[in-house]
C-alpha cells in the first residue's frame, strides 16, 4: 500500500479538490486499492512526510522541507495541463523501484 500525503495551506480546500482528482485518476490507471491519501497543512509536511511514499502539494513548497518525493500539483486545482502531473505522480509512486 502506497501512502500519499496531500497538502495545501489550510488542509481543507484545494487539497480536498486535488485529493478527489488524484484518487480518480489513479483508479483509472489501474491502481485501485493500492494507495491511501491523507490531507494535511503544508506546515505539517516536515513532520509528516517521513511516514509517506509521496507528497502532492497544491502550493509551491521547498523540496528541502519534504522527506519523501514531492510533486507540485497546482494545475490540478482547476484541471489544467493535468497529464504531466499525473504521469509524475504515477512515476514517483509506482515506477521508481
Amino acid at each position: 500500500m502506497k501512502r500519499i500525503l496531500l497538502c495545501c495551506a489550510t488542509g481543507v480546500a484545494t487539497s480536498t479538490v486535488v485529493h478527489k482528482r488524484v484518487e480518480e485518476e489513479l483508479k483509472k490507471r489501474g491502481y485501485a486499492n493500492q494507495f491511501t491519501i491523507t490531507q494535511c497543512k503544508v506546515a505539517e509536511v516536515p513532520g509528516q512526510s517521513p511516514n509517506y511514499d509521496l507528497c502532492v502539494s497544491t502550493i509551491n513548497m521547498d523540496a528541502k522541507n519534504c522527506a519523501c518525493p514531492l510533486v507540485i500539483a497546482t494545475n490540478l486545482i482547476i484541471n489544467r495541463m493535468t497529464e504531466p502531473i499525473y504521469n509524475e505522480i504515477e512515476e514517483k509512486l509506482f515506477k521508481s523501484e
Binding site: 489550510t10 480546500a13 480536498t16 485529493h19 482547476i78
Partner: peptide
C-alpha cells in the same frame, strides 16, 4: 470552510 471532505463535491463543482 469548517472541515475537510464535507464540501468536496461543491468544491469540485466550483472548479468545473
Amino acid at each position: 470552510l469548517k472541515e475537510a471532505h464535507q464540501q468536496m463535491d461543491m468544491l469540485m463543482k466550483l472548479m468545473d
